[in-house]
């Protein structure tokens, strides 16, 4: 079964509409992000901000100061890029309770092309003190991440993809901010993945198993704060790490993992991700192949 994270996001917001603290702000992309679903059940707490991301973030900051839990929603490229300095100074610096929920992350935006493909947003958000970064792997985890972000007080960046991803979690799954999830245990290599790459990592582990290579697969839904303990442990157990993400290898999950390992457990690591390039138009599958983010690419990387 495959459900898109943005649909799960729209559903989660809709289910939570009775919480009077929740306000949804939209920069004219609510139909695509699914934030518009909230408007249908709760028009009074849905705020059209127009095509003005900087103002949207600032408005969210003011709402948060007054006790609201604002979800500022738009595409990842605009949320983190266009409004970066507003996020820095009006949200992260005063540590306000603003949730930035961005869809259309990564290259699988597809046909819209490089202008719309967000490949550096994790790097931008990781660099900000006080910022928590969540990137769920499927629809169930998306909903859980939304719930967890509400329980947590402070700025959270929630990074969601546009395309449908296989559901890998049980409906009773409980998400905890800051915890990585070991989905499979193996002694030969640890594949550490986030977002849409997690289900691909599981598939890759199956293929490796057929070749006699036993892989650990780790899902990292909280990119910041990173679960250092699990990262160190799986590196120690396997001595060989592969990271996989739909984001630049500069400043994303791979960088974060390498930062921990370099200090704590130097381990040879292969980073799968966008290799310091912008995206381009094409179908999601074409682009994943072009940027070497397929199951086969993970299998090959695990065999280096």
């Amino acid at each position: 079964m495959s459900i898109t994270m943005r649909d799960a996001f729209g559903q989660a917001l809709t289910e939570l509409h009775n919480d009077p603290r929740i306000i949804v702000l939209d920069a004219d992309l609510g139909k695509a992000t699914r934030a518009i679903n909230f408007k249908k059940v709760c028009p009074e707490r849905f705020l059209d901000m127009g095509i003005a991301e900087q103002d949207m973030i600032g408005t969210a900051a003011g709402l948060a100061i007054c006790g609201k839990i604002p979800f500022a929603t738009t595409f990842a490229v605009f949320a983190t890029g266009r409004a970066f300095e507003q996020i820095r100074n009006s949200v992260a610096y005063p540590k306000l309770n603003v949730k930035i929920a961005a869809t259309h992350a990564g290259i699988t935006v597809g046909y819209d092309g490089g202008s719309h493909q967000s490949v550096v947003d994790i790097a931008l958000m990781r660099s900000l003190p006080n910022m928590v970064i969540l990137q769920p792997a499927d629809a169930i985890e998306t909903k859980q991440a939304i719930y967890a972000s509400i329980e947590y007080y402070g700025p959270v960046y929630i990074r969601l993809s546009r395309i449908a991803t296989p559901v890998i979690h049980d409906p009773n799954y409980k998400f905890k901010i800051g915890k990585a999830e070991v989905l499979r245990k193996g002694k030969d290599v640890a594949i550490i993945a986030t977002g849409i790459m997690v289900s691909k990592a599981l598939e890759a582990a199956d293929k490796l198993q057929a070749e006699g290579i036993k892989a650990t697969v780790v899902n990292v839904p909280t990119i910041k704060p990173l679960d250092r303990e699990v990262i160190i442990k799986v590196a120690q157990e396997t001595g060989k790490v592969v990271t996989a993400e739909e984001h630049s290898v500069i400043g994303g999950l791979g960088s974060a993992v390498c930062e921990v390992l370099a200090e704590e457990m130097p381990t040879k690591t292969k980073m799968l991700g966008i290799q310091d390039r912008f995206g381009c138009s094409g179908s999601p599958d074409e682009l994943l192949k072009h940027f070497k983010l397929t199951v086969e690419d993970i299998v090959n990387a695990a065999k280096y």
């Binding site: 900087q54 600032g58 408005t59 709402l63 100074n89 005063p94």
Partner: peptide
Amino acid sequence: DMSSGSLGQGLSVANGMALSGKLD
């Protein structure tokens, strides 16, 4: 009531506070 310094951001925040007041 609000951190500031990077110019141009205060009115957006004021609007957020005002919207919250109206809602409540």
